[in-house]
Computed example of a mutant assay.
Amino acid sequence: MEFTGQNFPQSNHTTLVEFILLGFSDVPSLQRFLFRVFLIIYIIILVGNSLIIIITKVDPSLQIPMHFFLGNFSFLEICYVSVTVPRLLQDLCRQDRNISFLACATQMYFFLVLGATECFILTAMAYDRYVAVCNPLLYPLIMNSSLCTQLAAGCWTSGVPVHIGFTYFIFSLPFCGSNQLNHFFCDIPTILTLACGDTFMIEMLIYLIALLVVTIHFLIILGSYVKIVLTILKLPSATGRAKSFSTCSSHLMVVAIFFGSVIITYLRPKSSHSARTDKFLSLFYTIVTPMFNPLIYCLRIKDVMVALKKFLLKWIALQQKQ
């Protein structure tokens, strides 16, 4: 695949057919250790989120909108980490870290789409908590199965058309010189460092999309929780306040970790970008957050914890019978 620009002579560009993901090659002595660590984390993410999906489907006590969105969120996390982690594990075991333009563009596209979907689902979950706490009498009427299905469908599909064009725009830039990406996956800031010429327009587009997809949804969630907290503080029962805070705090913790690392990565000035910092921040929203999500929700939400214990006890009993 050849990338050329109208404002630059053809001779100034190298025809690139692939990138090289450097990943963590700068610490060769830690390759095996990192492989074990990331493999364990990946297994925890797969098992933890799979258990949440199963119990939200099979346990009748969890057939409510909050757990419907939690099941969607857990499935999303499995898809999200599977875009980057398997490739990372593969690269930690081999010297050949080449990735074709098509594979790189595909990885970036799914990473962006699933990242946007995570923003949307976290916002839908905040809306669900807002209705449950601030309008409890109307909650069953407002958060009916039809609305939940529509919200979930909207979350999964809204980012698809935008990021098709966005990914195409990025990979239509002219590339020249080195083809080495100092990252463990095809992320936007790293790709742009290899682009030739003026990238001002694409950078402005990144800020615009980040503003629409990340910042605005974060502010919506923040505004919802301001009203939620004010409502909770007015509850007469200390037990009711404690239960509401416990349910909402788990979601807030996930929101803070995910949105915080994403905002710092994509909205901070270009001059402050460094490969080491970008890789470190990327680990938070690609690996760390998905690992902690099932732990946070299981430990903080009593209903999920009880259902998980029941499911595991039944599974153990079934295994003993066999």
Rank of each mutant, 00 (worst) to 15 (best):
Met1Phe: 12
Gly5Glu: 06
His13Gln: 04
His13Leu: 14
Val17Ile: 13
Ile20Tyr: 02
Leu21Gln: 04
Gln31Trp: 07
Gln31Leu: 14
Gln31Glu: 12
Gln31Arg: 15
Phe35Lys: 04
Leu39Val: 09
Leu39Phe: 11
Ile40Val: 14
Ile41Ala: 13
Ile43His: 07
Ile45Met: 09
Leu51Gln: 08
Leu51Gly: 03
Leu51Thr: 06
Ile53Asn: 02
Lys57Phe: 13
Val58Glu: 06
Pro65Gln: 10
Leu70Asp: 01
Phe73Thr: 03
Phe73Pro: 02
Leu76Lys: 01
Cys79Lys: 09
Thr84Glu: 07
Val85Thr: 11
Pro86Asn: 10
Arg87Thr: 10
Arg87Ser: 14
Leu88His: 00
Leu89Gln: 08
Cys93Phe: 11
Gln95Val: 10
Gln95Gly: 12
Gln95Leu: 14
Asn98Arg: 14
Ala103Arg: 11
Cys104Val: 02
Gln107Trp: 07
Gln107Asp: 09
Met108Asp: 04
Ala116His: 08
Thr123Gln: 10
Thr123Cys: 12
Met125Thr: 08
Asn135Met: 13
Leu137Thr: 07
Tyr139Gln: 05
Ser145Gly: 15
Gln150Leu: 15
Leu151His: 01
Thr157Ile: 15
Ser158Met: 14
Ser158Trp: 12
Val160Glu: 05
Pro161Val: 09
Val162Met: 13
His163Tyr: 15
Ile164Glu: 07
Ile170Trp: 00
Ser172Lys: 15
Pro174Phe: 02
Phe175Ala: 01
Cys176Leu: 05
Cys176Ala: 06
Gly177Met: 08
Gly177His: 04
Ser178Cys: 11
Gln180Asp: 04
Leu181Tyr: 00
Asn182Val: 04
His183Arg: 03
Phe184Met: 03
Phe185Gln: 01
Asp187Ile: 09
Leu194Ala: 07
Asp198Leu: 11
Thr199Arg: 01
Phe200Ile: 12
Met204Asn: 11
Ile206Leu: 14
Ala210Met: 13
Thr215His: 10
Leu219His: 06
Val226Gln: 11
Val226Pro: 02
Thr231Leu: 05
Lys234Ile: 09
Ser237Met: 10
Lys243Tyr: 05
Phe245Lys: 06
Phe245Val: 15
Ser249Trp: 07
Ser249Cys: 13
Val255Ser: 02
Ile257Thr: 03
Phe259Thr: 01
Ser261Arg: 02
Leu267Asn: 09
Arg268Ile: 07
Ser272Ala: 14
His273Ser: 02
Arg276Asp: 03
Lys279Gln: 09
Phe280Asn: 06
Phe280Arg: 08
Leu281Thr: 02
Phe284Trp: 05
Ile287Pro: 00
Pro294Met: 10
Pro294Phe: 12
Leu295Pro: 03
Ile296Lys: 02
Ile296Phe: 13
Arg300Glu: 05
Lys302Met: 09
Leu308Ile: 07
Leu313His: 13
Trp315Tyr: 10
Leu318Phe: 15
